[in-house]
Computed example of a mutant assay.
Amino acid sequence: MPKAVWNDLVIAESNDTVLVEGNHYFPRSTLRDDLIRGSNTQSVCPWKGTASYYTLEHDGQISPDAVWYYPEPGPKAGMVRDRIAFSGDVQVID
C-alpha cells in the first residue's frame, strides 16, 4: 500500500492512489490534518490548473509547501480532484 512518510511519520496511506507525471496523488481524506497548515503559495500547470499548497509542521520540524493539490483541476485533470501529492522531504513508498 503506498504511503507518504515525513520525518518518520506516515502522513498519508492508501491503496487508492493515482499516478500522474510520476507523482502519487492520494485521496485528500488520507492526509493527517494535525500535521498541516495552510500556505499562500500557488503554482500553475498548463493542463492541471492552479495548485495550492500545505506546509507540514510537527515537533518544531517544518517542510514548507510539501503538499500540493488542485482545488479546481482543469478539464483533462479530473483524476486529481480531491487528491494531494507530495514534494520536498516527503518520501512516497510503494
Rank of each mutant, 00 (worst) to 15 (best):
G49Q: 00
Q42W: 04
E72C: 07
M1D: 13
D89V: 12
R28M: 05
L31D: 00
E13K: 07
T50S: 10
N40H: 07
D65W: 03
C45K: 07
N40L: 07
L31K: 01
G88K: 01
Y25K: 03
S43W: 03
W68Y: 15
V10G: 02
D89E: 12
T41C: 07
K3R: 15
W6A: 00
N40C: 02
L31R: 02
Y70V: 03
G78N: 14
N15G: 07
W68M: 09
G60K: 13
S63Q: 15
D8K: 13
T41H: 13
V18K: 14
Y25E: 04
I62Y: 13
D94Y: 03
D34T: 12
F86E: 00
E21P: 00
D82N: 15
S43N: 05
M79T: 08
Q42N: 05
S39F: 15
V5Y: 09
A77L: 09
L9M: 11
E21K: 06
A51D: 12
I11L: 00
Y25F: 11
R32D: 14
V92F: 02
R37K: 15
F86S: 01
W47V: 04
L19N: 12
L9H: 06
S52P: 03
Q42G: 02
W68C: 08
I84Q: 10
K3I: 08
Y70L: 05
D82T: 08
K76M: 14
T50E: 14
I11P: 00
D82C: 10
S29L: 02
E57C: 06
T30H: 01
N40E: 13
I93P: 02
A12H: 07
D94W: 02
R32A: 11
T55Y: 08
V20R: 09
R28S: 04
W47K: 09
N7V: 06
M1Y: 12
T55I: 10
I62W: 11
V10H: 02
D59H: 15
N7P: 04
M79K: 10
P64Y: 04
D33K: 09
P2R: 13
Q42L: 05
Y53S: 09
S87F: 04
V5P: 02
P73Y: 08
S52T: 06
P75S: 10
T30A: 04
S52M: 00
G74V: 08
V44M: 10
S14D: 05
A51P: 10
H24W: 04
L56Y: 12
P2Q: 09
D65A: 01
G49R: 00
V67M: 11
S87G: 02
G22P: 04
I36G: 03
N7C: 07
V44A: 11
T30F: 01
P46N: 04
G38I: 14
Y53Q: 07
Y54F: 15
D89L: 08
H58M: 10
W68A: 08
E13G: 02
N15T: 12
D8P: 01
R83I: 07
S63N: 12
A66V: 15
A12Y: 07
S39W: 15
T30W: 01
W47C: 01
